[in-house]
Design a protein around this nucleic acid. Structure first.
Lengths: 212, 212
DNA sequence: GTGCGATGTATCGGTCCGATACATCGCGGC
DNA sequence: GCCGCGATGTATCGGACCGATACATCGCAC
C-alpha cells in the first residue's frame, strides 16, 4: 500500500522523505492517521533497490549563490523512474483482495485521477460488494446473536452497520456517476470552488501538469 | 489490542483458539475484519508465558466413554488466571494514546460492560477529542489545500469529514447518556435482553433503563 | 545567546496479517 | 461402501507497518 502511494505521489513531482510524508498525510488524511517514518524510509530503500525510484541531487537550480560553505545538508530527493511508472500502472491494473479493504480502497481511490474509468468502476463495485458483505454480517449478529451480547457491544455493531449502509449509498452514487458520463465528482457538490488565500510559499511541485 | 480482547473474552468463559477467533469476529465485527491465526496463536503463547492464561484439559466431564483409542484430538482450551484478570483490569485503567485510535477505541468500547463509568467517560471524551482533531485537519485540507488536490481526493476527504462529524455526534449522545443516568444504550434504540450465565462480577450496566 | 519548535534522516523491537500446511470430523452423493 | 468437501482445528513464516527513539540543523522569539 505504501509502495503504491509513494509511486503515485512521486509521479506528480520529486520529493524528499519528510515532504513525502506530509503530502501523504494530506492526501490520505481521511483514511489513515499519518504514515510512520519507520515504514517510510525502509520502503523508500526497497523501492530504490528495485529500481523504481532514484535519488536526485538536491540543487535548487540557482545553486551558485551559496556554494558549499555549510556542508550541504543531507536532504535526499527521490524521483520516480520509467520502471517505477510501469510498476505503478501495473499495481493499478491488478486488483487483489487487499484492494477492497479499508486502507487499500482508500489509497486506490485517492489516485483515481490516474486510473482509467473501467478500473475505477471495477474497484468501486468490488468495494461495494465487500461492504455489503460486512453489512450482512453485522445484521446477522444483531439479529441472531443479539441476546448473547451486552448493550455496548450491540451499540457498536449498530454504529458499524450504519456506517456500512452509508458507505454503500456513497458508492452507489459514485458508481452511477461513473457510468453515466465520466464526471469526477458526485452531483451534490460542485467543482470545489477555489478561494486562494494561502499560496504555499515553496510549492513542492509548482510545474504540475496533469498527464491525461 | 489482541491481548486486551483475548483476556476480555476469556473472562466470560474458557475457549480454544478457533472458538476465540469466532467470538472475536462476532464481537469486533464492526471495527475490524477478522483476526488472523498468525496473530492469535503467537499471542496466546505470549499470554501463557506471562502467566495470564493457562491450558485447561479438554475433557467433557463424561470422558470415560471413549478413553483414548483414537488419540484424543489436540484441542487446547485456554482459561484466564487471577493474574490475567488483574492484567485486564490494569489495561482498562491505563489509557494510552492507542486507546483512542480506531481499533483501540473499538476494542475498549466492546468491553465497556466490564469498565467502570468514570473510565468509560474518559475514553469516550478522549475519542471525541481525537476525532475532532481529525475533523479539523480534514476541514483545513478541504479549505486551504483544495486547489492542489484532484476531485477524487477531495471527495474522499469530504466523505471522511462526514464520517467524523457523524461519529462526534454519536459520541456526544453516548457521553450525555453516560453522564445523566448510567444507561448503557443511546435513547433511540432499545432491545438487548439477558446475558448468558457468567460468573464474573456484576457488569456495570446490564440494567437497561429507557431514558426519555 | 539561548532555548525551542519545525525540518530532516534513520534504526529497532514488536504487533499483526496473509499465505500456507496439515489433520480430523460429519454428511451427502454416487 | 467410500469419496469428496466444507467446517473445525492448530500451527509457522515472511513481510508490512507502527511507535519510540536518536540525532542534527535551521530560524526565530525572548
Amino acid at each position: 500500500m505504501l509502495e503504491f502511494a509513494i509511486l503515485g505521489l512521486l509521479q506528480e513531482s520529486p520529493m524528499h522523505g519528510y515532504e513525502l510524508r506530509k503530502e501523504l498525510t494530506a492526501k490520505l488524511g481521511a483514511i489513515r492517521a499519518a504514515i510512520s517514518y519507520g515504514s517510510l524510509y525502509p520502503t523508500l530503500r526497497r523501492l530504490q533497490a528495485a529500481g523504481w525510484i532514484t535519488e536526485a541531487a538536491e540543487t535548487p537550480a540557482t545553486a551558485e549563490e551559496v556554494p558549499a560553505l555549510t556542508s550541504r545538508r543531507g536532504r535526499v530527493v527521490y524521483k520516480i523512474t520509467a520502471e517505477g511508472k510501469e510498476r505503478f500502472a501495473q499495481l493499478i491494473a491488478q486488483a487483489g483482495p487487499e484492494t477492497y479493504d479499508d486502507t487499500g480502497f482508500g489509497v486506490h481511490f485517492a489516485f483515481f485521477a490516474r486510473t482509467d474509468q473501467a478500473t475505477r468502476l471495477r474497484i468501486l463495485e468490488g468495494r461495494r460488494r465487500k461492504i455489503e458483505e460486512r453489512r450482512e454480517g453485522l445484521r446477522d449478529v444483531l439479529g441472531r446473536a443479539a441476546e448473547r451480547l451486552d448493550a455496548y457491544t450491540l451499540e457498536l455493531q449498530r454504529h458499524g452497520l450504519d456506517a456500512c449502509e452509508r458507505e454503500v449509498r456513497w458508492l452507489e452514487e459514485l458508481i452511477a456517476n461513473e457510468r453515466s458520463g465520466r464526471a469526477p465528482t458526485v452531483p451534490h457538490l460542485g467543482t470545489a470552488g477555489g478561494r486562494r488565500e494561502d499560496n504555499s510559499p515553496p510549492p513542492p511541485g509548482e510545474t504540475r501538469k496533469e498527464r491525461p
